[in-house]
Design a protein around this nucleic acid. Structure first.
Lengths: 223, 223
DNA sequence: TAGATTGTTAATCGATTAACAATC
DNA sequence: TAGATTGTTAATCGATTAACAATC
């Protein structure tokens, strides 16, 4: 019960997909069991951390051998709620939207982009891979009829806030935002960013730190 | 000195791009000063946190009024190392690679994708927006000649590890990985993922938590 | 001046890590 | 059995938040 309220730590949630990918690979290779030690080694984590993470799924292992791979996979998928496929609409059929619509990996997370919408009338009627593109005007009707509850935003920054508000108005409860803009929405709407700037900022900071440390330790490239 | 070794906290680094976007917008609107309170309000953060973050840039404010916007922008850009443009090569000219090559926002982070590389010979000789596509064989030569030190990986998961190793072999020191695969590389190589699965996992977890909480508090959609 | 905002020091909170007994 | 690995409890670490004096 306490678990429901606070839930699994976000850092743990973020590591789950990595475990999942590796476990699925092991399963394909015909393996049946794996130890936390091995997972840690392969993913550059500490064994204790892997054990703590796994304990969040409720799965128990056997001392000396480890965990049953198929059980772990099932438990992680269930913990993330990826066992029930969720339909999503995509807003924005530009280059990024197009790449997202065609991305095949979503299937394994239980996410299905069922339709795309764009203001550009020329794009309407076309398809992004398997995903049909409709005019933005038909968004509300589509969402209501098909009970979609996730919206993927891939429009230019200037339009993002407006589109997000439109989605909320249409009854969408969760928004996955790829536009470089921080959205201001009611608290009960779940928003998750995938922000290239944020990711690159971390890369930049790490590079800067590395350079600083290299210089401190007197490392040189050539001499 | 201590600062160099440990550096600015990663969570702070992650918030910098959001500050930056907002500050630049304010500057365009002709504003000159802004308080931490206003920034916090607009970004859904707490004022104390914004002040702590700003203190990492070394910028000092004036009680009652706040901070000089242009100084803040300059300081954040400098802190991130975005004041010196960095050249990067892109590996993989598929849909995602194409979207990345055409993305205009990189300019404001000091990142410039100067060339793309692909194994598919049909793609070579074409352009992704302004970015020319070359055969993978010419990667090593290009990197050496042009002193590129960032590699952006946008290839299928199965090829990611191999491509990353190739990049390291070519002398690349930082890799921005968009492939859904955890890379195993020497410690001195800086790796940053932009993993859709991770981002979607967080969204999924938040949705699950929200549903659980809504049920706990007895909220209903319709009755 | 009065009051809002800054900057700093201390308290709290949450995640990671360490230590170690339990177990196969 | 011996030794590797699990699971739990406690210690550490780092970031967030609170409290409050300084300041314009």
């Amino acid at each position: 019960m306490e678990d429901l309220k606070r839930g699994i730590p976000i850092p743990t949630i973020k590591r789950f997909p990595s475990y999942l990918r590796l476990l699925r690979q092991y399963l394909e290779e015909g393996k049946e069991m794996v130890s936390a030690t091995t997972l840690a080694e392969e993913l550059g984590l500490k064994p204790i951390q892997v054990r703590k993470d796994i304990s969040c799924t409720g799965i128990e292992g056997k001392p000396k051998v480890g965990f049953i791979i198929s059980y772990l996979i099932e438990a992680i998928v269930h913990t993330l709620g990826w066992d029930n496929a969720t339909d999503a609409v995509l807003i924005g059929a530009g280059h990024l939207g197009s790449a997202l619509a065609r991305y095949e990996g979503f299937e394994s997370y239980g996410l299905k982009i069922v339709a795309a919408f764009d203001i550009d009338k020329d794009k309407c009627g076309t398809k992004l891979g398997e995903v049909p593109v409709f005019p933005l005007e038909s968004l509300k009707g589509y969402i209501k009829e098909n009970h979609v509850n996730i919206g993927v935003v891939a429009v230019p920054a200037i339009q993002a806030q407006g589109i997000a508000e439109l989605l909320v108005e249409c009854g969408i409860v969760a928004i996955w935002n790829f536009a470089p803009k921080d959205l201001k929405l009611p608290e009960n709407v779940v928003v998750q960013r995938t922000d290239l700037a944020t990711s690159f900022a971390v890369l930049s900071a790490k590079v800067k730190r590395k350079i600083a440390n290299d210089e401190l330790s007197g490392e040189v490239d050539e001499w």
